[in-house]
Amino acid sequence: MPTVCPTCDAQVVLPAGTELSEIISCPECQTQLAVKAVGDEPQVEPAPAIEEDWGE
């Protein structure tokens, strides 16, 4: 079942093997989305912005 991009309302289908908290791109507007739920009722939300302490 697809979910909806919170930015452009496009339908977003999670690729097979998608994990919780993975970052994907909306196929329509390319917004980075964080996966909040997988399975029968997938959910996405805008991905968090990069912060100063992010990295390796």
């Binding site: 919780l20 908290s21 993975e22 970052i23």
Partner: peptide
């Protein structure tokens, strides 16, 4: 973890291949 990157997915796969139980 926080966001799951390609690295974390590789780690999950490697753990499964070695029958290591992972708690995310």
């Amino acid at each position: 973890h926080s966001t799951i990157r390609g690295e974390e997915k590789l780690l999950l796969q490697a753990a499964r291949e070695r029958s290591v139980e992972i708690e995310l």
